[in-house]
Design a binder for these strands. Structure first.
Length: 564
RNA sequence: CGGGGCGUAGCGUAGUCCGGUUAGCGCGCCUGCUUUGGGAGCAGGAGGUCGCAGGUUCGAAUCCUGCCGCCCCGACCA
């Protein structure tokens, strides 16, 4: 492809609306343009990458016996009502105004609809059906460029099986395919064993990429690979033992001290000797939760411990229940359950609220002063906490969810009546699995992990072109004809070549080449051409070689073989 | 949906507080000449409903009201 004729509108300046790296670079490299919030056009160069990603996905899905479908994006609303998902999706589901259709945000319904009509016997299974298509979700807040859009390309696969045992096999096939896909794309990812979500299943895993642009907070152990959503992650913390000399409780006047930070500042103490109080309402009853210092309450852990409905108390409730506002609440004389995080287990000489505004207490001994106290692991895991599976430390960071696989079970087959007959002629619902990958997210995540201050750095698998050929001076016939020759020769060798044949200054072309980030750059300039040489640069490492034109082919082969 | 920010030429922006020339600058674009190994130089040129609508005023990019759009934080995320 000749760059002079290729629509690649690169930008020198960073568009004001983009803040995350992948978004900035996709815009600057002329791969995408925004049309509306969360809605992007892929321009030729960007679409080329997207097709490369899709093809890898397609090959790996085919390799496990997947069959590709092309399904409608507009679905009858009725079928979505039958599974209760019009209500479940709520505002996220796009509705068509002038007919009873919805824009499909996923395709369980349609797949089940087809299965119902044709998969009637145990002999018809297993099946792995997939599609790579645009999905629509009315996201309340699209963000981070292509990472959370209202319209996005998704690979969705669905498996149909006769039993949960068979589903396990299908699930592990898809798991393997996912690992192959992300490996081939060159992504540094990890797998989170997620809680069986609200989708109602028996198992699920999320494939994640560490990124500041991510929306999920994940605790990960680099040593044993344990990974979990920080909301549910288990972690070990070093126990703090009681101090030998226990003090008696004493009141401290603390005017206008509301936060732990302010308390520590006011009393010149460390937050580890503070017991922070949070009041929750559990099925109508007040529960006081004590955390050390500024540890945050993990509400899903708390819910698990308490059972029933759990919500934070409103400010008015707090005052009524404790006699104080948030910031001065404490465990002494609290009427209701008191449950403390394990980090506070049997501690003494703690500081806490006095249940009296503008007062705190010191010398608190949980063992002595709060007799009915209970203990549980309630804190949100933090970087540096110990891994519960091995002896190393957990790291907590944000991550992007690239893919999600889960065992659906029979929720949809039962709702839509997709039944089959077994060997004995008995009828059962089809057992399903569902497996999604955000295709643009693969692209964005790759970029998040592979760029430098000059621009993109593509690997072989995803690069839109293998080679970026630069003719330095298009006014010199010798350069032009040699570059043209290389352009044609390299393509005959099977390389995809982007030829910068524009009549532009050298620096301009170099910078565009670095921005676009093809793995190999070949420069044809007057200086080297005199010696029958050209210059070959490896984008990723910046290594530069002068290569005899006659040896270009073999050198290029060797070089490309060594690249990722 | 709550909080914050922004909206001026294709892109990046100044001007807005304190109303008053022809709305300025950089990049990009067009023409010509020069230039061609790290985002070229000179000369000339095109391009603006100052987000939209209303209001105040002799006069509005600037003040007021309403709306729309975009970004960020939060909530949300089968």
């Amino acid at each position: 492809m000749k760059l002079s004729k290729y629509f690649v509108p690169t930008l020198k300046e960073v568009p004001a609306d983009a803040t995350v790296k992948s978004h900035i670079l996709m815009l600057r490299s002329g791969m995408i343009r925004m049309v509306s919030a969360g809605i992007y056009s892929f321009l030729p160069l960007g679409y080329k990458v997207l097709r490369k990603v899709s093809q890898i996905v397609r090959e790996e899905m085919d390799a496990i016996g997947g069959q590709e479908f092309h399904l409608p994006a507009i679905n009858p609303k009725e079928i979505w009502e039958q599974t209760g998902r019009v209500e479940a999706f709520g505002d996220i589901l796009f509705h068509i105004k002038n007919r009873d259709y919805v824009l499909a945000p996923t395709h369980e319904e349609i797949i089940t609809f087809h299965a119902k009509n044709v998969v009637k016997s145990y002999k018809d299974m297993p099946q792995i059906w997939y599609q790579i298509q645009t999905k629509f979700r009315n996201e309340p807040r699209p963000r981070s460029g292509v990472i959370r859009g209202r319209q996005f390309l998704m690979k969705d696969a669905y498996t149909l099986d006769v039993s949960y045992e068979a589903l396990d096999i299908a699930y592990s096939l898809n798991d393997k395919a996912y690992r192959n896909i992300f490996d081939r794309c060159g992504l540094d990812y990890f797998v989170v064993g997620a809680s069986s979500g609200a989708m109602g299943g028996t198992g699920s895993e999320e494939f994640m990429v560490k990124s500041d642009a991510g929306e999920d907070s994940v605790a990960h152990c680099g040593s044993c690979g344990y990974a979990a959503n920080a909301e549910v992650a288990a972690s070990k913390v070093d126990a703090i033992v009681r101090e030998k000399d226990g003090k008696e409780i004493y009141d401290i006047h603390t005017p206008n001290v509301r936060t732990i930070d302010e308390l520590c500042e006011f009393l010149k103490i460390d937050e580890t000797v503070c017991a922070k109080s949070r009041v929750y309402i559990n099925d109508g009853k007040a529960v006081l939760v004590l955390m050390q210092g500024n540890d945050d309450v993990n509400e899903s852990k708390l819910t698990k411990v308490l059972g029933g409905n759990v919500r934070p108390g409103h400010p008015e409730e707090l005052l009524k229940i404790t006699g104080a506002d948030a910031g001065s609440i404490g465990p002494i004389d609290f009427k209701g359950r008191v449950i403390a995080d394990l980090k506070l287990n049997d501690r003494n000489n703690l500081f806490s609220g006095a249940n009296k505004n503008n007062y705190h207490i010191g010398g608190l001994d949980l063992k002595r002063d709060v007799t009915k106290i209970e203990y549980a692991d309630l804190r949100i895991a933090q970087s540096g906490d110990g891994c519960t599976k091995c002896d190393n430390k957990l790291e907590v960071f944000t991550a992007i969810e690239l893919g999600h696989i889960f065992k659906l079970g029979t929720k949809y087959s039962e709702a839509l009546g997709a039944m089959y007959l077994d060997e004995k002629g008995e009828e059962h619902p089809i057992v399903m699995g569902s497996y999604g990958i955000g295709v643009e997210r693969i692209m964005a995540c790759y970029i998040e992990q592979n760029y430098d201050d000059k621009g993109l750095i593509w690997n072989k698998a995803l690069a839109p072109f293998d080679v970026h050929l630069i003719a330095l001076n298009m006014k010199k016939d010798a350069i032009v004809s040699m570059a043209e020759k290389l352009f044609s020769d390299l393509q005959k060798e099977g390389y995809e070549v982007l030829f910068d044949d524009r009549d532009a200054a050298a620096g301009f072309k170099f910078n565009d080449a670095d921005l676009l980030g093809m793995p190999i750059q070949i420069v044809v300039g007057e200086r080297k051409l005199k010696e029958n040489k050209c210059e070959v640069t490896v984008r990723a490492t910046g290594e530069r070689f002068d290569v005899e034109l006659s040896e270009l082919n073999s050198k290029l082969k060797d070089l490309i073989d060594t690249l990722k």
